[in-house]
Simulated assay, not measured.
Amino acid sequence: MTEGNFVDYVKIYVQSGKGGRGSTHLHREKFIEKGGPDGGDGGRGGHVYLVGNKELWTLFHLKFARHIKATHGGDGGSDRSTGADGEDKFIEVPLGTVVRDKETNEILFEITEHGEKKIVALGGKGGLGNWHFRSSTNQTPRYAQPGLQGEEKDIILELKVLADVGLVGFPNAGKSTLLSVMTSAKPKIADYPFTTLKPNLGIVQYRDFRSFVMADIPGIIEGAAEGKGLGHYFLRHIERNSTLLFLVPADAPDIRKEYDILVNELEKYNPEMLDKQRLLVISKSDMLDDELKAELKKELDKTLKKVPYLFISSVAQQGLVELKDKLWQMLNP
């Protein structure tokens, strides 16, 4: 899938169907001139559902579907026959889709499982026919209920990428390169900041036909939690990852400082992010000789008490097996 086809935010208008009218029919047949009421009920209006589909990775198919409407219920008929229900509308969305009310910005629900089905707009109830209103004092009621109106609302669909491991780092830290060598994903790679403008997903093949999903999230800059750079546009994707892989290049002026800035941005955006498992990975470590690497290890051992770290090189294919082993161990304790 090309970067332009990755859509993770859409606004759509949904409208459920109106309920059908109840019938005011009076029974008539040969030799029965004044039969009683036999008007049937109206059918309910169609619902609008959201359905989870694990085969979808993006909201691109809804980019141009701005108005989605279910059909109205049929009117009631004679002989107490109920009108047909309106046709329901089913909107398929990828797993990890959050549904918000556009006016209040309130989260209505989230779709996280394949086949999960939730009503976003409830169809109107059909009106009762005159048969329901007969009584000893009113044996031929000539009125029935109208159907209830359906719901209409503007909603926002936001996709939070579902991945086991999220790559977190500054622009140009080597996240796309790491994803390309760890998985079969083909992200755009170039030697300038913000090459990645949309999240990329890849499946890491592990031993014994096991696998896990890794996501390359667009690079963080200082102030991202306040919306600078790509801001909230990508931070929400990290919320779903169970393990965060912080990638800092070996040629960074201060590895610990860069790591602290990244952690601080996540904390400002959502403090619960700090509850996730973390792994610090120093990329481009083929640039380090043994002496410099030993010095860095000594410094990191002193300052990073609880966070494990690894040295790798995506280009030189160094430390990648150890990285897979470590990630699998973290994901499957």
Rank of each mutant, 00 (worst) to 15 (best):
K102H: 04
P94V: 10
I156E: 13
K160M: 14
R100G: 00
T140G: 00
Y143I: 05
H132N: 07
G127Y: 00
S78L: 09
V161N: 01
V98D: 10
R80M: 10
T137Q: 10
L159W: 13
K117D: 02
Q139G: 05
T104R: 11
K198C: 02
E103W: 06
D164Y: 07
I155N: 05
K117T: 15
E87L: 14
K118A: 04
Q145P: 00
D85P: 09
D88H: 15
A185L: 06
P171G: 02
K160V: 08
E151Q: 15
L128V: 07
G124W: 07
A163K: 08
E92C: 11
Q139S: 12
F194Q: 01
N138C: 09
E110G: 08
G86N: 03
S176Y: 11
E158I: 15
L157G: 05
T195C: 05
S184W: 00
S184A: 14
F109C: 11
E113N: 08
S135W: 14
I119M: 10
A84Y: 03
L148T: 03
T82G: 00
L122C: 04
I156K: 06
I91Q: 02
I156D: 03
A173C: 04
F194A: 03
Y192C: 03
A144L: 09
G129I: 07
N138S: 07
D88I: 11
L95T: 09
G74L: 13
P171R: 02
T137V: 14
E92R: 12
A163L: 13
L148F: 08
I155C: 09
D75M: 09
D85V: 03
E110L: 12
Y143F: 15
R134E: 14
S136C: 00
D164W: 12
P141E: 03
K117S: 07
F170T: 00
E152A: 14
L162C: 05
P146H: 09
E103G: 02
T112H: 04
A121W: 04
K198W: 01
E106W: 03
I119T: 12
G147Y: 07
K198A: 08
L122Q: 15
G150W: 09
V168R: 03
G76H: 06
E151C: 06
G76T: 09
A173T: 01
K118W: 01
K160Y: 06
D154F: 15
V161P: 00
V168S: 04
L122W: 13
E152I: 07
S136Q: 09
G166W: 05
E152P: 01
L148Y: 04
T82F: 02
G115D: 06
S184P: 01
V181F: 08
G115E: 10
L197P: 01
E152D: 04
K118D: 00
G74T: 10
N172M: 07
L197M: 13
N200C: 08
V93I: 15
L128I: 02
I107Y: 00
V99I: 15
S135L: 11
T183Y: 11
V165R: 06
T196W: 04
L162P: 03
P171L: 08
D75N: 15
P94I: 11
G124Y: 07
L95Y: 14
E152N: 11
D164E: 08
G96W: 11
M182E: 10
L159S: 12
S184T: 12
V98Y: 15
R80L: 12
G150C: 09
Q139T: 15
K153F: 02
T177W: 01
P94Q: 09
D101K: 10
